[in-house]
Amino acid sequence: MVKIDDKLDNLKQVVLHMATLINNMYGKVYECLETMDVDKALEVIKMDEFVNRCEEEVNDTAIECLALLSPVASDLRKVIAAIKITTDLERIGDYSKNIASFVIKNDDLDDETKKMTKAIMDEFLTMLDHAMDAYAKEDSKWAMQIPDEDEIINKKFKEISDSLRTNEHYKADDIINISEMIRNIERAGDHTKNICEHIIYQVKGQHIEFD
């Protein structure tokens, strides 16, 4: 085993750990939405600090690799992919924080909106789970397919937006706020698509951009 293998393995573990933390954040933020529990929402905001720390750890390890071990070829691509994936994960973490802030600032949602929000969040978490599994297995073929799942998220986002427009329960301001809150999940899906691009770059050395 060459020295860089330890560092690369460490990078991968931190990236995967970061994804697990984010998964927990979204789990908790959904519970918040159910009950509009402000304390729990504050916990989610607190959890984001740990996610940010993971990003710093990945950056520090990556810089150390570049400075001391001069990685090339697939080693270099692994370092670059880890940096880029954590940047996307960090943004995904921020989106769950935004949803937590919504819980703190807004009143309860109606059952229909909760149900639809849960559905889109489930789709997103499944997509993120698939992406991180493809990363763990270094499976570029799978990473090519996962972005299709974003179509479902986009479709669901549109359905919720349409439904909100005709919802008589909410005022105009509420509709804007809820729509923005759900937009966070839609954006998180886009960042998961970016993660798939980074996995493909890491494994195949090819730059692919999904629409």
Binding site: V2, P71, A73
Partner: peptide, 17 residues
């Protein structure tokens, strides 16, 4: 060669494996 070599032997050599 240093970012995406085609041959595994090249990859192994330049990465020190």
């Amino acid at each position: 060669i240093f970012q995406n070599p085609k041959d595994k032997r090249t990859e192994d050599y330049i990465t020190g494996r």
